[in-house]
Each structure stands twice: as C-alpha cells, then as structure tokens.
C-alpha cells in the first residue's frame, strides 16, 4: 500500500470517533446557524425564507437595542476593571512573597466555583434592606445606600462588581505566568543603569507583559460578551430591562417564545460583534504588543 494511503487510513481511524461527533453536533450547527437567521420560524408554522426581515425587525425592536447597549455597558466596565485588579494583584504577588501558592489558590477559587451558587450568595449580600453590604454601608454613614439588584441604576453595577470579583483571580494567574516569563537579567541590567522601580516597571515589565495583556484582553472581552448565568439568577434581565443582555434576550426569544428564526438572526449579530472586536484586536496588536524574539 502507498505510504500516503496508509497514513490516511490510520489518521482517519484515529480521528473518526471525535470527528463524527464534531461534524454532526458542532460543524453542521455552525453552518446552519447562518442559514436560520434568514428564516421565519416559530416552531408552530413551517419554516419559510424571509430574507433580511429578521434583521429589519431587530432595528425596530427596542428590547434588542437595550440588550445590545447593556452588553456593551457590561463589557466596557467589566473588562478594564478586571484587568486592572488582576494586574495589580499579580504585580504584588510576584514580588517575592513566600506563600504565593496559597494566595494564588484563594484568588483563583471564585473562578472555579459555579456561577449559580456564587450569584445566589451575592444576591443575598446585595439585599437592599437586610444584606450585609448595605448594613455595612449604613454603619459607615451612608444613610441611603444603593438598592443594588432592585434598582434600575444599580442593578448593572451590582452584576459587574460580582463578575469582576469572580474572574479577577483567573486573569491574575495568567499575568503571574507572564511576569515569570520575563528574563531576570533585564532587571539586573536596568538596576546597573540606575533605573528606578517605576522606570523598571514602565520600560521593562510593561512592554514585555503586553503579549499576556493582549491574550487576557481578547479572552476577557469574549467572555464578558457571553454573560448569562449571573443575570439569570440575580436579576432576570431586570428590573425592567436594566440588565437585559444579548445572550439573555436570545435565550428568551428562542427557548421561551420559540422564535427560532429571529433568535438565530440575533445570534448571528452577536457573533459578528465578537468576531469584529476580535479581528480589530488582532489588527491593533502590532501597534502595542512587544514580542521578545
């Protein structure tokens, strides 16, 4: 048997168990996702092609617009806050503390814990009248503390704070790995040249950490766009539509209202949003990311 043919046969027998599942349950749905967005389909009447009508409906749908802006609001605050907190913690932890592993584990744990359980606890902590957070605020003199998840203004910040708390440790671990990858001799050279601590951070640490920063930023953006679990538990998109985000609205339209076609069109827009931001990120990369080699 020819070598290529033999290799092919062997390779496919290794691939087959995974590939069949991948093809049927991932690849085909990916392709179908696009097609569905041009259909009207409410699962009671047969599917029919409606061209761009779903997308026109979206433009007139105030809930969709609110969900879109709320998703940007959530992401726009969660991402920078998480990154700043994670970076500060990583820098503090990297500077020769003896029990790095213990602190790393403590900070990483909220990321591993289920969002559902954690959101339930935070909902109690946020309780406007009896919750410990507001009790504490009253104790330090805030006579009229925010009503958190019960308030149109404060519901989103409440979800954001909880989300930053949950994922900061995860990105801190990434930053720590990045910091440990910076060669020590660069700092020695800088010391010999008489650089101050700030200068070392500004001209050695920060530039060499940009690949990690880039990776963290990309991941964190995608992750934040997908926010769902904490919204479902803590606010159900409310009060009113104050915390209605895209994935929650897509879920409602598809699995509660059975508007599969319309929901698919919104899912397509959601994907374009993620794809667009990610491509933009990669384009911008050359301008600010420094690779050592």
């Amino acid at each position: 048997m020819k070598r290529t043919t033999r290799n092919r046969l062997v390779a496919y027998s290794f691939l087959l168990p995974n590939f069949i599942g991948f093809l049927v349950f991932t690849l085909i749905p990916v392709i179908a996702a696009l097609g569905l967005s041009f259909m009207k389909w409410d699962s009671y009447s047969p599917m029919r092609f409606v061209g761009l009508r779903n997308f026109q409906t979206m433009l007139k749908d105030s809930s969709f617009k609110i969900a879109f802006w709320n998703t940007l609001y959530f992401t726009g605050l969660t991402v920078p806050l998480t990154i700043v907190v994670a970076l500060i913690l990583a820098l503090a932890l990297n500077k020769g503390l003896r029990s790095v592993k213990v602190f790393r584990a403590i900070h990483f744990f909220p990321h591993v814990a289920s969002t559902i359980a954690v959101a339930v606890v935070w909902q109690f902590l946020y309780h406007p009248d009896m919750g410990p957070i507001n009790q504490l605020l009253r104790l330090v003199g805030v006579s009229d503390p925010p009503r958190w998840t019960a308030s149109v203004t404060w519901a989103m910040p409440a979800v954001i704070i909880m989300s930053v708390w949950k994922s900061a440790g995860y990105y801190m671990v990434m930053f720590l790995a990045g910091l440990q990858g910076i060669p020590g001799h660069l700092y020695e050279v800088a010391t010999i040249d008489g650089a101050t601590a700030w200068q070392k951070f500004r001209y050695v640490t920060l530039p060499l950490l940009t690949p990690t920063l880039f990776f963290v930023l990309t991941m964190n953006l995608i992750y934040s766009f997908k926010v769902f679990d904490q919204i479902y538990i803590m606010t159900e998109g409310g009060p009113g539509r104050a915390t209605m985000v895209l994935v929650y609205y897509i879920y409602l339209q598809a699995f509660v209202n059975q508007n599969f076609g319309y929901a698919s069109a919104m899912a397509a827009v959601f994907f374009l949003l993620i794809l667009g931001v990610t491509i933009f990120q990669f384009r911008l990369q050359e301008r600010w990311v420094t690779y050592l080699d």
């Binding site: 085909i28 749905p29 569905l36 997908k226 598809a254 929901a263 959601f270 993620i274 990610t278």
Partner: peptide
Amino acid sequence: ATLIVPFQVIMIPQFIL
C-alpha cells in the same frame, strides 16, 4: 475555526437538530 464560535451562537440549530 469552530473554537471561536461560542456555544450561544449555535445553541439554536443544535437544539433543533
């Protein structure tokens, strides 16, 4: 390529399947 497509984007066709 499918790795960058989030579950939320394909959950509807998957469900229909």
